[in-house]
Design a protein around this nucleic acid. Structure first.
Lengths: 345, 345
DNA sequence: CTGAAAGCGCTTACAG
DNA sequence: CTGAAAGCGCTTACAG
């Protein structure tokens, strides 16, 4: 059993453990180079074992409330705003300061995460939440090395083995529910307009869609399945593509509300009435769904709750507690509004 | 001329200046209560004059990059998101960490700003930006006492004399432009649906509206002028009110896009076609304007630029530099889309 | 490269 | 309520 250290370790204790004098420990801590390598190693070991922190370090550590970082990797307005809101509202309640930054995927990949983690450590920030970002193992390690807790909301790529904690929604079940709703209305020609082909959440929604079709014995068609981006423009392009088919779909399941917005735009331009001529289901349940005409049937994600859960999770991790599960999925819910109806006869 | 202090002041210097012993200064710094009030005051004065900071305070000060706080006082999605985006994008460029929090006006007024400012000081945060919040002089002083720079975006109340720096848009000119656009189309019965009667920006828009009408010799009518809140629900209520008048308006200038959303909703429910039966102009120029049917004519505020300007301003202030002007207004621009047309004949 | 000795800046315990 | 004295934890200057 290792020695237990009741009171905070002081430099003299470290020196005793390492079998050197106090000045030598002082030199190691302050990065002087007039210390033999072997000695330096022994001192480092003692420092680590005792968990020694200099007075200033102690101060930044213990002082004030918890602070965490939040990185927003996607900027499609309503979606990230809802998550942000969930996090910030809860942060006020639990007295946590949140350092928010916003990066395009491209910009984020060029960031020096080692430097980032170091800066966090210096200002006493103990955890980081990524929203819809791609995280590499190298980046992850930069934080783990410094004992900074990492949690990802709606990860774009599947976590590496033993990777990070994450919070998401039941994308598969949501995709299945949306598709079954259309099937129940009598549709059989149902298209799926997805997000990026590599995005985990989009893939899960696609498989929910496929599961629903197969469950009812409806043949799946490759030309009804498109990938794109989570935005209106991509939704419009994909819509034009499927609606130009010889046998166009009578219903479209869009993998995000913004994609659905593109579908509505194209339908309007072509004089297709929604839902009479074409049914549309979105995904996310952002406030957008109440502002479209007709109001959009959509699979709602509990975005604010996801934000709350993420903050709670990263705080627990940063206190060294274990999470019940490394990945949590909160339930989606199909909300039927006005954009779905039986197919035209 | 006061003494200049080249090197960092130490406790002994403060003690000498105050004419007390070092232990007494130590007690004052650490908030002990066994010090006579008169003594405490003398020591405080010496502390202030020398700008003494304890070793820990010195450490937190110098370490790392600039950090500022951002308080979002309004949550109507698109509007604050755009400002936030302007701030965060610029923050990455200039390597500044932004601590974001979000408060309802009610919650904000119950916050202990002295504690807040103290916490900021402790973690080395040097400035704070409020977005659309009401700031009292007491709150302001809490920050000023600790030399924390304060800047308000789109202040709700006019700043107290010698108050805070602020960034806004040309609300008066925007209100005038919107109204002149409607007058140019031939409208004379134009209603103004405002935000809160006390909100500076709404008042300025109202006066722009009045100026335009007067400039063209059109009589202003009290029953065409309503105040409310900056949201869809309030816009819907106000619309119902003005449209129920014996002589209803042929055009409505809404003081925000969200209010305009309420107008569109009511128009649709009553079978009024926009713009054929009723013209609608919004304010803000949020992405909302592209998502409505018909697309909304609106006075665009340069929200992202306002965010940038605010961050730049607060950073200059926190470095002790002077701003060119304590209040900056960025130009609004009327963007004509599909929701305005000549009045029905 | 190492550490005994001196010193620094601050705090604590206590006598007055 | 105040401060001389002792002490704490760390660092510096320097002899070996």
């Amino acid at each position: 059993m290792p020695t237990t250290h009741r009171s905070k370790p002081i430099l003299a204790t470290v020196a005793a453990l390492a079998g050197v004098s106090a000045p030598t420990v002082s030199k190691v801590i302050n990065g002087r180079d007039d210390v033999a390598d072997a000695t330096r190693l022994r001192v480092q070991a003692a420092l680590d074992e005792l968990g020694y922190r200099s007075p200033m370090q102690r101060r930044t550590r213990s002082t004030g409330p918890a602070m965490i970082d939040l990185v927003i990797g996607v900027h499609d307005g309503a979606y990230s705003m809802e998550i942000l809101r969930g996090i910030l509202d809860f942060a006020v309640d639990v007295d946590v300061d949140v350092v928010v930054s916003s990066y395009t995927p491209d910009k984020l990949s060029r960031v020096d995460h080692d430097e980032w983690a170091e800066r966090m450590k210096e200002s006493g920030r103990s955890g980081i939440i990524f929203v819809t970002s791609e995280i590499t193992i190298d980046q992850l390690n930069a934080f783990h090395r410094r004992e900074i807790a990492v949690l990802v909301i709606d990860p774009l790529n599947p976590p590496p083995p033993g990777g990070y904690a994450s919070v998401g929604a039941t994308n598969w079940a949501g995709g299945k529910a949306a598709t079954e709703h259309l099937l129940d209305l009598g549709h059989e020609r149902i298209a799926f307009l997805g997000g990026p082909a590599a995005a985990e959440c989009s893939v899960a929604r696609l498989h929910g869609y496929l599961a629903a079709l197969m469950g009812r014995g409806v043949t799946t068609r490759q030309d009804y399945i498109l990938a794109g981006a989570f935005n209106q423009k991509s939704g419009a392009e994909a819509s034009r593509e499927v609606l130009a088919l010889d046998e166009p779909p009578t219903a479209i399941f869009a993998a995000s509300d913004t994609i659905a917005l593109g579908v509505l735009e194209v339908a309007r331009n072509r004089g297709l009435r929604v839902p009479d001529d074409l049914s549309v289901v979105g995904f996310d349940g952002t406030p957008l769904t109440e502002q479209t005409l007709p109001r959009l049937t959509s699979v709602a994600q509990p975005l604010q709750e996801m934000g709350r859960a993420a903050l709670r999770g990263v705080l627990r991790l940063s206190r060294g507690e274990q999470l019940d599960s490394s990945h949590t999925e909160l339930a989606t819910e199909l909300v039927v509004r006005e954009s779905t109806a039986p197919p035209p006869v």
